[in-house]
């Protein structure tokens, strides 16, 4: 089974985010980038499929700060090959990025493949989701919000479980090749020791491919970006833990909850 996993770096929202002076983008000066959470789950699901059925897991990621660290970590976990798409500007928008991914799949010799897995969403998706748009462009089967992929080697049938609201799940049979938007892997993403990542950095390499900018994509005009206004903000309780606990008890008592 040949699987391509699309990975993307996103700002770490645990850190404080600042708006750039243009008022329309994030200030990248002190921005810490991490692997998009559901992309990490897509990687895990791909590695589980490889363990069960053999094959290869290839990674494709737009170039971004700290992407090499994420790619070497993924190689250390068991991925076979990593390719960066050079020269992508995050401000291009999802449609343009998808067009570049389609080209990169060819130029980096990643096709044919059975599956392309990526995260069901990213925290910076403004103008569309990668998985459905990519499936549509490639004319491959598609489902998103997926939390399990099963392949029956004896029948060649692939079944995919998709999350529905309220804890409901649905099982679909899907023909390959397919693009799947993974919400969560069957198991939590595996941990890889730093020593193994360092070893991967010494012995393995990351390929790079360049593809032209796609023209004529419908773009959005960003007017402004801002941190949420204080409207409706919680009343903040301050003090040492014991003092805060006392104040909270007063609040609970006032609401008839004690």
């Amino acid at each position: 089974m040949k699987i391509v996993v699309l990975l993307k770096m996103v700002p770490d929202v645990v850190e404080e985010l600042e708006i750039a002076p243009d008022g329309k983008s994030l200030d990248t000066t002190y921005l810490r980038m991490i692997l998009n959470d559901s992309d990490n789950h897509a990687l895990e699901e791909a590695l589980l499929l490889k363990e069960r059925h053999g094959g290869k897991v290839c990674l494709l990621a737009p170039d971004a700060p700290e992407v090499d660290d994420a790619l070497f970590a993924a190689l250390a976990k068991g991925a076979d090959r990593a390719v960066k798409i050079a020269g992508i500007d995050a401000a291009e928008g999802t449609r343009a990025v998808v067009a570049r991914i389609v080209q990169a799949l060819s130029t980096a010799d990643l096709l044919p493949a059975d599956l392309i897995l990526t995260g069901a969403q990213a925290i910076d998706d403004l103008d569309g989701l990668v998985a459905p748009l990519l499936a549509q462009t490639l004319r491959w089967s598609h489902l998103s919000v997926v939390n399990q992929v099963r392949f029956d080697a004896s029948t060649g049938v692939t079944t995919v479980t998709k999350e529905f609201p309220g804890g409901l799940r649905a099982e679909f049979e899907i023909k390959l090749p397919a693009v799947l938007g993974i919400q969560s892997a069957e198991k939590p993403p595996r941990y890889v020791p730093v020593a193994k990542v360092r070893a991967a950095m010494k012995s393995l390499q990351i390929d790079s491919t360049t593809v032209p900018i796609a023209a004529g994509m419908p773009a959005l005009e960003i007017q402004s970006m801002a941190k949420p206004s204080a409207a409706g903000h919680a009343e903040m309780l301050e003090g040492l833990p014991e003092a805060v606990a006392g104040k909270l008890c007063d609040v609970l008592a006032a609401h008839g909850l004690l």
């Binding site: 700002p11 925290i123 403004l126 005009e221 960003i222 007017q223 206004s229």
Partner: peptide, 11 residues
Amino acid sequence: LYGGKVEAIVR
């Protein structure tokens, strides 16, 4: 965007 940490206005 960004898990609810930023609001954007687009046209």
